[in-house]
């Protein structure tokens, strides 16, 4: 494979004129002396779905964990809604986290709680709503969005992989976030369920006008969900464009990501 020396930018971004909700400049992060993110520059616009594509273990998840303050970068600028994440106090960070939803790769459902309690948990802690009827209405609305109202009293251990993923999405949606970060949403799912989850991501984008960063190495998911796609390699964003632009690229290195054996 040809070694890349410069970043490749193909792009046409229809969202460019919209407001930037996530601004990342020269972000660096290393673990135990090993540099994972070397120089990340990225803007996410309002209502846009950005897919970050790349091999496993190159720091894709680290990048989105930096956005919600789960991991702090070593240097660089990281602004969400024009606020510098590194300079936020715990209260401000909590405020931000109610506006930024995070869907974990392993779903991270609280396994000692029922689906209802999983959805109620962030609601009771972050919103001033204490009326049980209103809470119940929001829970049902959130479950209806993912088509799993029947699972309300089930425990996470009773759910399939796809159902868990949907409940994870419902738990995030209940706080009505403006940005959603998806960490490998289709990993470990069959083709059909992966497609359903990918369609759900697009439905959420259209219904709630959310901006999203979707970490994935699933080509189908990237194709369905992305407005813009980035390829992360060796700690930097090496290529950027729409899915079709990158897939039809003449560059050998880029096209290697789209090869099907």
């Amino acid at each position: 494979m040809k070694e890349q020396t410069e970043n490749i930018e193909i792009v046409t971004n229809t969202f460019e004129k919209k407001k930037v909700v996530i601004q990342i400049e020269h972000l660096k992060k290393s673990f135990n002396g090993k540099s994972i993110l070397k120089d990340i520059n990225l803007n996410v616009h309002k209502g846009e779905n950005v897919v970050i594509f790349g091999k496993s273990g190159i720091g894709k998840s680290v990048l989105i964990k930096c956005i919600v303050g789960l991991i702090y970068p070593d240097s660089g600028l990281l602004k969400v809604f024009d606020q510098d994440v590194a300079e936020m106090n715990p209260h401000e960070l909590n405020e931000l986290r109610t506006r930024v939803g995070f869907i974990f790769q392993g779903n991270a459902l609280y396994d000692s709680m029922t689906v209802r309690e999983n959805l109620e948990f962030p609601l009771r802690r972050n919103k001033t709503i204490q009326d049980p009827a209103v809470i119940e209405k929001l829970i049902f609305e959130s479950l209806e969005n993912v088509g799993l109202v029947d699972a309300i009293d089930k425990m996470p251990s009773e759910l399939s992989g796809g159902m868990k993923k949907r409940i994870g999405v419902a738990r995030t949606l209940i706080l009505k976030p403006e940005i959603i970060l998806y960490d490998e949403p289709t990993t470990g799912l069959d083709t059909l369920t992966s497609r359903e989850i990918s369609s759900l991501i697009v439905e959420i984008q259209q219904k709630y006008k959310t901006s999203s960063i979707i970490i994935s190495h699933d080509l189908n998911c990237a194709k369905i969900t992305s407005n813009r796609m980035l390829i992360l390699h060796d700690g930097v964003i090496r290529a950027e464009g729409t899915f079709d632009e990158l897939r039809n690229s003449n560059d050998e290195w880029i096209s290697s990501y789209f090869k099907i054996d």
């Binding site: 964990k65 919600v68 789960l70 715990p90 909590n94 405020e95 986290r97 109610t98 930024v100 939803g101 995070f102 974990f104 790769q105 392993g106 991270a108 459902l109 609280y110 396994d111 948990f121 962030p122 802690r125 972050n126 738990r171 706080l175």
Partner: peptide, 14 residues
């Protein structure tokens, strides 16, 4: 290890 603590943190719970 199942990221439930991280999930709690990102949902605004200490």
């Amino acid at each position: 290890v199942t990221e439930q603590i991280d999930a709690m943190e990102v949902s605004g719970t200490n």
